[in-house]
């Protein structure tokens, strides 16, 4: 049972727990920022770093250089370097960018990590699912807030 649960966690997006903001009810301001925490639980930067690097989760390194992870191979260059990103944006901005960057950067190639609808021809197993869970978004944002060094 425990095993089956662990697999379900990996394959499907994590279920929405009570008290969480669902992907369709996230409230963005006119610049794309999200003030309210998606979970009410403080983000864990250590887990956020893992989600950031994991190819099946954030895979943020696919597109962004991040000197804080200089040991990890292959940083992409599709997006800007995230060095010092905490100095350029407020936490609400970063939450909005991770949840749905298209609200901040219209037309961007960066995927929206906390939406679950509006996909064209998604693979069946990802249909109706968000790329990250609400807590994973909070964890990644907490990690981004540690990137203060240019």
């Amino acid at each position: 049972m425990k095993h089956a649960f662990a697999i379900a966690m990996v394959v499907t997006a994590v279920p929405v727990w009570a008290g969480e903001v669902t992907p369709s009810s996230v409230s963005f301001d006119e610049y794309g920022a999200v003030t309210e925490s998606l979970t009410g639980v403080t983000g864990d930067p250590e887990n956020g770093a893992k989600v950031f690097a994991n190819r099946k989760q954030g895979n943020c390194l696919a597109c962004h250089v991040n000197s804080d992870m200089a040991d990890a191979p292959f940083h992409g260059e599709v997006g800007p370097s995230l060095d010092g990103v905490a100095g350029r944006w407020e936490i609400a901005d970063l939450r909005g960018i991770v949840a749905n960057s298209k609200k901040t950067f219209p037309g961007t190639i960066m995927p929206a990590f906390y939406i679950d609808a509006g996909y064209e021809r998604p693979l069946e197993k990802f249909s109706g699912k968000s790329l990250l869970s609400a807590q994973q978004v909070e964890d990644v944002v907490a990690y981004l807030m540690t990137l203060t060094e240019e």
Binding site: R55, A62, G76, E77, I109, P111, A112, Y119, P122
Partner: peptide, 24 residues
């Protein structure tokens, strides 16, 4: 046309980003 859960079109990678590294 942008497709899939990542909402990307061929053009996003092969027109807008050729020459760039995407991970390895």
């Amino acid at each position: 046309t942008r497709v899939g859960q990542l909402q990307m079109a061929c053009a996003n990678c092969h027109e807008d980003n050729y020459g760039n590294m995407i991970r390895a």
